[in-house]
Amino acid sequence: MTASSGAGSVGPRTGRRHGARHSGRGLTRWLFLLPALVLLAVLIVYPIGDAIRLAFTSWDGFSAPHSIGLSNFEDLLKDKRFKESLLHNLAIVVAIPIWIAVPYAVACGIHTKVAGWRFFRLVFFLPVVLSPVVLGAYYGIVLAESGPLNGALRSVGLGGLAHEWLNDPALTLPVVIGIIIWATFGVGVLIFLAGLANLDEEIVEAAQVDGASRWQIQRHVVFWQLLPVIEFWTVIIVIASFTAFFPLIYTLTKGGPGTATFTVDFDLYSEAFTSGRLGYASAIGVVMMFIILVTCGGLVALLRWRRS
């Protein structure tokens, strides 16, 4: 289909071809990049190096760290809590297709200018602005055993579906994942809306003239044009699902019931600051970085797979 190949051409490769035009002014090019690179080198890369170095040491934060080789990583392999937490994080990763689809669909819906779209756009952003403290308190009340949700289920005769949502080992993790998706879909909507606003309308219109159906256009034109944005969102949620959800989980369930919603970032925080095992915590961080990168790489490859 012509439309799809047209969309595909707006890729990084063409950008490069164009770039050749400026290749004569080598220094200017680097000047664009340099400020960001310097800042990143000093404030991110150097600390990352420090953290990686610490991962091979035993350090309590008081005396000097001493090198212990791979010992932290060996311990990590035997660490039941870490492995359990990691499994919970992987369960969150499994939910990622929903996490992409929901904001994508909502953004497309808003983009159609459905009645009240400005209102919806604002309202869908509200959960993002709510602090984890509020979410914890709010869902603690809504999902309580005798709370409004179970009350509603019972009043419509679905009492059988009423559960202890936040105290059932089998249910709590899915419930928490649901809340997390709900609490963050506004960010995704925002990003996808920006992507849709950037659509090359000419290609879409060309497809319409060609008589393509709405679904065909969605699948063959919009999706491919939005692919860089989708890829971006995928990478961001993979990273966030490993590194940024502890506050939410902490206020919602305190990691419970039992250890059912413990996550690696919680494990990391408590190893580093509660127990003061800074070397071990760094090792956890390094392993997480590895897992995150592998997961991201896998998902991006999957997204791009159909393209070729």
Binding site: I44, V235, Y269
Partner: peptide, 8 residues
């Protein structure tokens, strides 16, 4: 750079 947890 994004993949290393900020806690570390």
């Amino acid at each position: 750079m994004m993949a290393l947890p900020p806690t570390v």
